[in-house]
Amino acid sequence: MSIQDQIQSILLEMRRGTLIISVLSQLKENEYGYSLVSKLEAKGMSVEPGTLYPLLRRLEKQGLLESSWDITENRPRRYYRLSQDGMICLKILSSEWQNQHDIMSKLLSEEE
């Protein structure tokens, strides 16, 4: 494996680790799968639809999200939003993320 491949693989792992918190952070309001892909993309977080759609269902099964079908428009859509547990989880994760960010900043500044 070349150094470029290794970097790509590490970057992929890093992004995987941040995906759930990114998704939770954008679901304080109702979103359907593709609208969430676009929302994340617009904020610089690129995510494959094929990764996101199953993830939304898994998070719902874990009780962090709740969903409902909207059949009032011409195309029925499934909307997801944070559940009560999801909100608590997001709060804890955000705080932990800040903590990790501070630690990493300190570690990386020592490197420089």
Binding site: Y32, G33, Y34, S38, P49, R75, R77, R78
Partner: peptide
């Protein structure tokens, strides 16, 4: 359930 949701998402992506 997945079939309905996936179809809806695919159609939205195509429209885009």
């Amino acid at each position: 359930d997945v079939s309905q949701e996936l179809t809806s998402e695919i159609e939205t992506m195509i429209d885009e």
